[in-house]
Design a binder for these strands. Structure first.
Lengths: 144, 144
DNA sequence: CGCATGTTCTGGAACGAGTCAAGATTGATC
DNA sequence: GATCAATCTTGACTCGTTCCAGAACATGCG
């Protein structure tokens, strides 16, 4: 009932109903950050038994709209979800294996929020994706 | 035969064959930056007549691998392509209509290339997407 | 505690971007 | 001009995601 697991409070606070699939989805996401949809479905099923994929898709969308989870989808990857929402952090994506790691904003608070020429756009968010090679893949490439 | 249109030289320089569909694709992309695949196909067909979508997909992939065009794909959008490749610029995407504009790198040369904690990743590129509202959509929202 | 109500889950089908495979065609080289 | 290999055509197909209709469920009130 503290920080680690208060999914019920989170759901209620967001004005969402508290249901088994939603709790299981939140648990799954906090246990495995950057999980792709299929993995979430598998985790929820391992937790509850049979759950339709539709339910999970629906839950994920509801949670995303409520701001409880964040949807990320680097190029060439399927949709992934994470629970760290609203703290303006970014991601490093491995070109080799597609793994993702969290990175705090590079230059401070929201540096990227002020592009040079904004073409009249009202910018409200900057999203940064770092592309590179993860330690494992770098090691594999070095030995190969 | 100068800078504006030397697609042939570009293709040859990249070691690619010079074919009708490839030239038409390059022309289409330079005429309409950030074009999505479907629009590219339409433009190529308007130029050459019947061309299979498979050919365009293949051409776009070949050009992307050769570094002649860059593939971008903001969340919730289909793949788009642009000819400005290799100059480390970024994009502003409108949440309303999905339009995209170019933005030069915010803090200088390649600032974003040094995240705080890199988790051991070897980062070779930073991709920034600014989310906001374009002038048109902002105006529409203000009057509404 | 029991009921009415609106939301949520189930199951199945549909959709669209992108991919695969095999054969015909075309550009590059000699 | 002939030959070879890269490229295009055709058509089917996969995969992630979404839509639809009906049954099940959580919630608030009497």
């Amino acid at each position: 009932m503290t920080e680690t697991t208060a999914p019920e409070a989170l759901l209620r606070g967001a004005g969402l109903r508290v249901t088994r699939p939603r709790l299981a989805t939140l648990r799954a996401l906090s246990a495995m950050p950057h999980a792709e949809t299929e993995a979430v479905i598998a985790a929820v099923r391992a937790d509850l038994g049979e759950v339709s994929h539709q339910a999970v898709y629906d839950v994920l969308r509801a949670l995303t709209e409520a701001g409880l989870v964040r949807r990320i989808q680097p190029q060439g990857s399927v949709a992934r979800y994470e629970t760290r929402a609203g703290d303006n952090h970014h991601h490093v994506v491995c070109r080799g294996c597609g793994s993702i790691a969290d990175v705090d904003c590079a230059v401070g608070h929201a540096p990227c929020l002020t592009p040079q020429a904004d073409h009249g756009f009202v910018v409200d968010e900057a999203e940064v994706v770092y592309w590179g090679t993860c330690p494992d893949c770098a090691r594999a490439a070095a030995t190969a």
